[in-house]
Design a protein around this nucleic acid. Structure first.
Length: 252
DNA sequence: AAATTATACAACCGCCGCATT
DNA sequence: CAATGCGGCGGTTGTATAATT
């Protein structure tokens, strides 16, 4: 049992509650969320306090509408990573995982469904084939490469993956610390996902001309930094776990 | 102008990995 | 070793507001 035995307030936060929470965090800083309700004098659970700060009250949050380049980045990163909202939001300054998730579900998901029924060749979502999900640190690189293809039910990350996947052990190939792929096609797919898909360039050109967006802004964050993001979050890629979702299973 | 429906996004729930006891 | 508590995450629901009838 994590919750308190007495009832805690739920639902929409009031201005008074917001003020108390902001005051508390200004005084004590972020973190130690279990202490926040008592320190702030709030009848809220720690998770509610944390969520309210991280998703709404934090002054670093950008509450404005998503810009075209942000949307573009969301599409690319979702193509690459799937529903890993926290990781995607990490590349969008001022955006929270909840914001990104909400935007995807209420704006982009609908387009994806539309794209599969009504063919819109300019919609980049249509060209999604596989989602690659890099995972950190399962096995040592001081091993020869072994490709495993059966499900590992006791692996939480794998259990969260709905479709089939491969597990790949990174290897000590020379002194190469880089990614290792089961075969060349998968490596090609990885980089294609990372960069752009076949019909995507026209779509981007179209969006730029419509929205009059500076090209350098749109391409300001090179996609091949994705590994660095993962490394920053999880540590180095000495070991690599890679699973593959077959998009075509869902969209035959 | 009121009632109904759709939308956007705020918030909750349950689960997870990890650290501590 | 198991039990517990924590921060964190993603799926889902709730709700205020906008749009439509």
């Amino acid at each position: 049992m994590e919750g308190q035995s007495f009832s805690v307030t739920k639902g929409t936060w009031t201005e008074e509650e917001d003020t108390l929470l902001k005051k508390c965090i200004r005084k004590h800083g972020e973190g130690k969320w279990h202490q926040v309700p008592s320190k702030a004098g709030l009848n809220r659970c720690r998770k509610s306090c944390r969520l309210r700060w991280l998703n709404y009250l934090n002054p670093n949050i950008n509450k404005g509408a998503f810009a075209a380049d942000e949307v573009d980045l969301i599409i690319r990163l979702h193509n690459l990573l799937g529903n890993r909202w926290s990781l995607i939001a990490g590349r969008l300054p001022g955006r929270t995982a909840n914001d990104v998730k909400n935007y995807w579900n209420s704006h982009l998901l609908k387009n994806k469904v539309d794209a599969s029924s009504n063919s819109n060749p300019l919609n980049p979502l249509k060209s999604i084939t596989r989602v690659f999900r890099p995972r950190p640190h399962i096995l040592s690189r001081n091993n020869f490469p072994i490709i495993l293809d059966e499900n590992k039910k006791n692996n939480a990350a794998a259990a969260a993956t709905p479709a089939s996947y491969n597990i790949l052990e990174s290897a000590n190939i020379g002194n190469n610390n880089s990614y290792c792929f089961p075969n060349e096609n998968d490596e090609m797919l990885w980089w294609e996902n990372l960069m752009m898909n076949e019909n995507e360039f026209d779509y981007q050109q179209q969006q730029r001309s419509i929205n009059n967006i500076n090209q350098s802004v749109l391409w300001g964050q090179p996609m091949n930094k994705e590994m660095e993001v993962e490394e920053e979050k999880y540590g180095s890629f000495d070991e690599l776990y890679l699973d593959v979702e077959l998009w075509n299973e869902l969209n035959p």
